[in-house]
Design a protein around this nucleic acid. Structure first.
Lengths: 216, 216
DNA sequence: CGGGTAATGTACGAAACGGTGAGTTAATTG
DNA sequence: CAATTAACTCACCGTTTCGTACATTACCCG
C-alpha cells in the first residue's frame, strides 16, 4: 500500500510523465557535462531507473533529446525574467536589480550556460529548429527597454545605448564568469565562482553597467 | 626539379615538419568546429595530404593531438600580447589600445576562442596537463598592471580595481561576442560579428572599460 | 651504392555507439 | 471480465571510430 508518489523502488507504478521527466533531468546533466557528441545515450539510460529503449520511446533519438534539454533550460530562465517587477524602482536601482537577477540565475543554473556554450559550438543549428525560438527574445528585452527609457527621460542615462547592447554586456559578464571558469582558473589561479568573491563580482557587474550608462 | 617548398603535388618530398604542421593545422579547425568528442580522427586525416597513421606517428593519439592544437592556439595569442608597447601612451589611451588589441585578436582568430570554449566544457582537464600552462598568465597581466598603476598615480583611475578584474571584463566582452554569436543571432536576430557593427562594438568596449575605471 | 632508419601507406581489429524488433506487463475502458 | 492500448523489458544489429600490426618507400651517410 505504498503511496504512488514514492520515489523509486519495486512498487513504483507506471507513470509516463515521471519517466519522461526523469530522462530529461538526467539528459540535461549529461549533455551539459559532456557536450552533444560526448554524451552517451547508454550512459543517460544507465543513470535513470528506466532503460535506453524508453529514451527512444519518449524522445525519438539522441538529437531530439538534446533539443528537449536545451528548450527546458531556456524555459527556466524565462520564468525568472517574467518574475521581475522593476517598474516601481528608480532607474539606476532597477538596472542593478536586473543585472543581479541575471547574475544570480547564471550562478544557480550552471547547466543552462553549459548547454548554451555547447549549442554555440554546433552553430546553434539545433536551436534554429526549435519551435520555442520566437518567444525567447521577448521578456528580457521588454523589461530592459522600459527601464532604459525611464532613465533617459529622467536625464540619468546616455541616449545612445540601446537595450540589446546593455543586455549583451550583462550576459557577457555572467556568461564569461561561469562558462570560462575552468580555463581562467587554470591560467590565472582565480576561481571566479568562489563563494568569497561572489559579492565582489555581483557589485562589480552593477558598477560596470551603471558606469557605462551614466558616463560622460 | 620543383622547389621542395612547393605546396602539394606529386613531386612533394618527404618532410616531417611540414607533415606535422599540416596535421596540426587541420586538427585545429576540426576540433574547433566539432568539439573534442565530435571531431573524427579519420576526418582530420582525410583533410590532410597524409594518412591517419601519421597522426599516431607524430602525436600519439587523439587526445594528444587535441592538446597540441590547444597549446598552439594559446601560443598565438601570447605573440600578440608581447608585441604591444603601451608604456609611452597616456593611461586612458593605453587601456583603449589594449582592449582593442584583444578585440582584434579574438575577431581574427575565431578558432582560438572555440577551442577555449570546448576546453571549458571539459573542465580544462587537458589544459591542466599542459606543460606550457605556467607561462600563459604572464604577458597580458604584466602589461595591464603597469598601465593601471600609471593611471592610478596620475589620479585618473579608481584605486580599487585590480588588473585581473579588468582583464576579465575585456575578455568577457570579446569572448561573448564570438563564442555566443550563434545563439545570440538565433534569439535576438543580431549578428554580433557583422562587419557593419564592428566599429560600434570596438568603441563600446573601450567606453565600457574606461567608464568603469574612471567612475565616481 | 647499399644498408639502415625515418617517414609513409594499407588493411584490419575490437570495442563503443546509436538505434530497433518483437514481445510482455500494467492500466483503462466498455 | 475481456479487449485495447499505453508503458515498459530484453536482446540484438549494423556502423562508426579509435587505434595498430605490418608492409613499403624515400632519404641519408659511410
Amino acid at each position: 500500500m505504498a503511496a504512488p508518489t514514492s520515489d523509486a523502488g519495486p512498487d513504483r507504478k507506471r507513470d509516463a510523465e515521471r519517466t519522461r521527466a526523469e530522462i530529461l533531468d538526467v539528459a540535461i546533466r549529461e549533455f551539459a557535462d559532456k557536450g552533444y557528441a560526448g554524451a552517451r545515450v547508454d550512459e543517460i539510460a544507465a543513470r535513470t531507473s528506466t532503460t535506453k529503449r524508453m529514451i527512444y520511446y519518449y524522445f525519438g533519438g539522441k538529437e531530439q533529446l538534446y533539443l528537449a534539454a536545451l528548450e527546458n533550460a531556456y524555459a527556466v530562465i524565462r520564468e525568472v525574467e517574467r518574475g521581475l517587477d522593476l517598474d516601481e524602482l528608480e532607474p539606476v536601482t532597477a538596472i542593478r536589480r536586473l543585472a543581479e537577477a541575471t547574475f544570480d540565475h547564471h550562478e544557480s543554473h550552471p547547466d543552462f550556460l553549459r548547454l548554451v556554450s555547447i549549442e554555440n559550438i554546433h552553430h546553434a543549428e539545433h536551436l534554429a529548429k526549435s519551435e520555442a525560438l520566437p518567444g525567447l527574445a521577448g521578456p528580457a528585452l521588454e523589461v530592459l527597454s522600459g527601464v532604459l527609457e525611464r532613465g533617459r527621460t529622467a536625464g540619468l542615462f546616455r541616449a545612445d545605448v540601446d537595450a540589446l547592447d546593455v543586455h549583451m554586456v550583462i550576459s557577457a559578464f555572467c556568461v564569461f564568469r561561469t562558462a570560462n571558469r575552468h580555463t581562467f582558473l587554470a591560467i590565472f589561479g582565480r576561481d571566479m565562482l568562489a563563494a568569497r568573491d561572489r559579492e565582489h563580482y555581483r557589485t562589480m557587474l552593477g558598477d560596470l553597467v551603471v558606469a557605462h550608462l551614466t558616463a560622460r
